[in-house]
Every structure is written in structure tokens, then in C-alpha cells.
Design a protein around this nucleic acid. Structure first.
Lengths: 118, 118
DNA sequence: CTGTATCCCAAACGATACTG
DNA sequence: CAGTATCGTTTGGGATACAG
């Protein structure tokens, strides 16, 4: 009742879905920023290392929100105040990101150069 | 002695390294193909669902090899015969891919459309 | 059979300026 | 403060033809 190859494809699609959600250049960084709690737009902007532009931060935040990993709360004040935080779904991803991190760290022996040294 | 924010960045870099290695459009599929054992180029080519082109398969295989996830064995015969298989490093990644798959499957409820229906 | 070589298109990303 | 708008560059990827 279980075609192994078929099953594997189904799983591989799941990977694609996951990568679609975290594959953006800055998304893992953003998720890690929000790990410790709610942050405002400017806090995330300043918190991310090799400077991200406002344009990219806005774009990736919108996508993460659309994918249900973070929530966006707008306070109707002036000047504007917007807070971002992880959802349950976003939180559920963090342990896996940790494992990916750990794996990456264990195995990036060779030619993968470090940026982010400033 | 442990700056939490610093630590987080280090880990996030690890994610980037991991994504750089598995983020190619076809790489997860290829790794899953090789999971059950050694395969020839044409076998992988035929095995992957929404048809991958030779160009892309060659390219992604070379990158996976360069990153140490697979090995490439060339038999000096004619017609050519080349076999690919997972390395230890590649194997060590599979459990994490499984978790990513599972997560993707659990959470791709909303608007993520399924391709690959032919 | 296992690749290369071209060409081309679309998406991703970055820089910068502007706005409610 | 928290964004848009616009533009340009770079990267990823597909189609096709050819080669050893």
C-alpha cells in the first residue's frame, strides 16, 4: 500500500514547501531575531548583521506573515509603531532551524567563507 | 562569556550554510533519490518527477559533490558510466530533511499549491 | 550515456529616493 | 517610524543543440 518512491516524492515536496518559507536570504535571521520576543520594525532592522535594506526587510516580513510564521501588530499612533512576533507555527519551526544550524556549523569546514566579520 | 545575540548570529550563519547546500531547486529531490543507494546519472534523470533537464541535473550534482554530500564515480568504459551515492555527510543531513519534510507537510495547509500532478 | 555550450527569460536582491 | 516606488544588477533556471 506504500509505494516508496511515491512516498519519497511527497516528502520531498514537503521540503520544498519548507524551503519556500525559510529560503529567503534574510528569513532565518529574522526568525532568530524574533525568537526572544516581540520586536519593532526598526529593532529588527538594526539587529540584523550585514545590513539589510528596509525594502528587503519589509518584503521578507510580509512573506513570513503571509506564511503564518509571524504576526504583525500595528498600533494606530503617530509616529507609527509596528510589532512583530513569532506565531505557534513559527515557533514550531525553530527546533528544526536549530538542527540545520548545528549541521551547517559542523560541516562548513571547507570552502564556505565567512561573511559578517565587521 | 556568552553574548546571546552573538551566538544567535553564529547559528543563523549555520542555517545559511545549510540552505546554500540544499537550497537548489532539485537538490532535496536528488538527495532523496540517492537515499536508497547508488544510482547512475540516467537513473536520477528519469527518477525525478517534474522533468529536470540534463543541464540542471549536472549542475546540481556537481554542486552537491563539491559540498561533499555525494560522491561521483566514473567508470572508464564506453559508453560512459557514472555512479552517484551519498557520503556520510550527505547521510547525516537526511534526518533533518525528514523533519523539514514533516514540518512542511504539517503546515502547508493554506495557499501552497501542489504542482507535480501529472 | 553523460555530459557542454549557448541563449534567454524571470525572479531575487540591492541602492537610493520619497511618503503618510 | 515604517514603510513605497523606481531602477539596475545579479543569480537561477529552462530550452535546445551539440560533443566525446
Amino acid at each position: 500500500m506504500e509505494e516508496p518512491s511515491e512516498k519519497q516524492y511527497k516528502y520531498a515536496w514537503g521540503i520544498d514547501a519548507a524551503i519556500a518559507v525559510i529560503g529567503g536570504k534574510w528569513k532565518p535571521l529574522i526568525l532568530y531575531e524574533l525568537r526572544d520576543g516581540t520586536l519593532r520594525f526598526s529593532q529588527i532592522l538594526r539587529g540584523i548583521q550585514p545590513k539589510i535594506t528596509q525594502r528587503m526587510l519589509t518584503k521578507e516580513l510580509r512573506e513570513l506573515e503571509k506564511d503564518g510564521l509571524i504576526t504583525r501588530k500595528v498600533y494606530p499612533v503617530v509616529p507609527p509603531k509596528v510589532e512583530y512576533s513569532l506565531t505557534e507555527k513559527g515557533l514550531s519551526l525553530m527546533p528544526i532551524l536549530d538542527e540545520l544550524c548545528h549541521w551547517g556549523y559542523e560541516h562548513m569546514d571547507d570552502e564556505i567563507e565567512f561573511k559578517c566579520e565587521e
